[in-house]
């Protein structure tokens, strides 16, 4: 067991974890942060995407011990003071989700994408989401939602 200190969605946690524990399992099983989900076992689907110190990572591809001393933000931590994050709002408005299983990861990745490139073209949005699979939406409305947030920011 290794002792780790990880701040998740603003809450500081101190836990003993097995060194092999994946961050996603630490989040879900130890902390009950079940908003972040698992969709595959090969790091292909992106359903588990969270932010580690503000950058998106696939939390099935990071060990919990690697998050020691770092800050993790999940889908549960991005709405502030009862206000949805603009990306959450855009996903809602553009009908960018159906079953919603890919959605937590997709939103976290989309936020990261715009942090990197605030004014992406459609092709750049599509390339930036390549690591996140969605089986329901055909991506059409997801791309639209991301473009909508980019447009709002651009217009500010």
């Amino acid at each position: 067991m290794t002792r780790i200190t990880v701040t998740v969605d603003g809450q500081k946690n101190v836990d003993d974890v097995e060194p092999r524990t994946l961050l996603v399992h630490y989040l879900r099983e130890t902390l009950g942060k079940v908003g972040t989900v698992v969709g595959c076992d090969t790091s292909n689907c992106g359903a588990c995407t969270v932010h580690l110190d503000g950058r998106s990572v696939k939390s099935c591809n990071v060990l919990a011990v690697q998050a020691d001393g770092h800050e993790v933000t999940t889908i549960e931590g991005i709405a502030a003071n009862g206000e949805l994050h603009p990306m959450q709002q855009a996903f809602h408005e553009c009908h960018a989700l159906q079953c919603g299983y890919c959605t937590p990861g997709m939103i976290m990745q989309a936020i990261d994408l715009l942090n990197d490139n605030p004014n992406p073209s459609e092709a750049e949005i599509r390339a930036g989401l390549e690591g996140n699979l969605c089986r329901c939406t055909g991506y059409h409305n997801i791309v639209k939602a991301v473009a909508q947030v980019a447009g709002q920011k651009g217009g500010e």
Binding site: K33, E76, G100
Partner: peptide
């Protein structure tokens, strides 16, 4: 807009 979305986009 869908009623279902609220819980799905917030991880609830």
């Amino acid at each position: 807009l869908r009623k279902e979305d609220q819980r799905l986009i917030t991880g609830r």
